[in-house]
Design a protein around this nucleic acid. Structure first.
Lengths: 237, 237
DNA sequence: ATGTAAACCAAAATCAAATTGGTGTCTGAC
DNA sequence: GTCAGACACCAATTTGATTTTGGTTTACAT
């Protein structure tokens, strides 16, 4: 099969097909990585230079992809994706962020009601207490943020937590600078206090539907306040 | 100033203030990291136990935050905005991804049922048809992915779409290379065909609850198949 | 009882060594 | 002269051992 006498111009082509055959028959590991060039060249009985030429062809065809220090792999190069927070924030707006929160966070809360540990719940309680004691909006916001994140942590699901963090990062980027300290601190009867407590209570009672509803209710209130504020600001203009 | 004779019950309080004073005067590095506990305790001439108690107080106050292996830092804990897909994927696994999908995607579908345009719906129908005609699992997967993304697009919410893309990128990174062509192509009675159609039907009828349920039902089936596959693989070992 | 010191643990950072694809250089054969 | 092959070198990456660090337990002393 393999011609030892390939000094003819078909050399390139034959090495390519030879490599193709090897890849077809050899069962590669799950990640589709094939042996390093030095190894593969001796295994196929060809020089590394020639092997690399064949691999160049296969890479141009999109059959394989290579990366220094990593290796050569079958298939197409995995897109190195960074969820670009800044880009998302630029294309978004406060209303959209609120809508997304209303879609996502209640379900995260529902999941948290199922998986939260006592430690999670006591941390939520701590956040509640601290947010009540806060003597500035800045502090209050810190504890509010931490409460919501603790709920996401309580899902015990790193991916959900990551998605929540992304959502939150966009929220902060969009809302940035919008709220400044108008009143000195939240009033003791601020709606969020009651609503936050309802959420944590439901989580503690493992009431998944109740937790989701409480969170949805809370976010709807926040959304309403946000729209009111925008209206008022528009009227002042 | 510092009392060397604090055997009184005020010991705790004084150590806290002592540490506070240290933090106030010492110019910390840019990242706000303060010396390791062992070092700081000897520098302040107090035991590590006592120092840690003081740090506990400061942490509860939100003045500092700590992390094993990293150190203790001033300010509030930076939400690790690791929108880094690769990092998320490394810390995750197929089961966790499925759980996250079941939490997120049904609600996105519910929102889509409210906002989808006729153009969105006809594109969904196109994906359905193409996926039926696919003659390889690879092709089928392509249309399946596109259908799910079209649903996310139909929410008309760029942020939700971005979150979906992030979730999807992690899914692909985690599942990568795990599924390979056992049968040549999906059977005509593959469960996904019926389930996908139920989802699109519900969206077309503006049936928000039905759409969410159909999506949840679909993903639960996928999860079950995934777990079955893992079980079978485990038995073979 | 209370507090201290020491030991131990697991998470994370750190550092050195080995891998690996990419690139240039020199030699020898034709 | 041309070109393939062997070799050396480079930079990115992985791997593994070691160190550092906050958290926890244990033994001991006062």
């Amino acid at each position: 099969m393999d011609s030892l006498t390939d000094a003819d111009p078909h050399t390139q082509k034959s090495t390519v097909t030879q490599v193709r055959a090897f890849l077809a028959q050899s069962n590669l590991p799950d990640d589709g990585r094939l042996p390093p060039e030095r190894e593969l060249s001796t295994a196929l009985g060809i020089s590394r230079t020639e092997l690399r030429k064949a691999l160049d062809v296969l890479e141009a065809e999109g059959q394989i992809w290579r990366h220094v220090g990593k290796g050569t792999f079958m298939g197409s190069r995995p897109l190195d994706t960074f969820a670009d927070i800044a880009a998302l924030a630029r294309r978004s707006n406060p209303a959209e962020v609120m809508r997304a929160r209303i879609v996502i966070e209640p379900e995260i809360t529902r999941a948290a009601a199922f998986t939260a540990t006592p430690a999670d719940i006591s941390e939520m309680r701590l956040c509640l207490a601290r947010s009540r004691q806060a003597d500035s909006w800045r502090q209050y916001e810190g504890w509010d943020t931490r409460l919501h994140r603790t709920i996401a942590e309580a899902t015990q699901n790193g991916l959900l937590l990551g998605l929540f963090d992304t959502l939150n990062a966009v929220r902060r980027a969009v809302t940035w600078g919008r709220l400044r300290a108008l009143p000195v601190k939240p009033a003791p009867d601020h709606h969020s206090f009651r609503e936050h407590e309802a959420i944590v209570d439901a989580i503690e009672h493992r009431d998944m539907a109740g937790a989701a509803n409480a969170m949805r209710n809370h976010l709807r209130t926040v959304e309403r306040k946000l729209l009111d504020k925008q209206l008022r600001a528009a009227e002042e203009d």
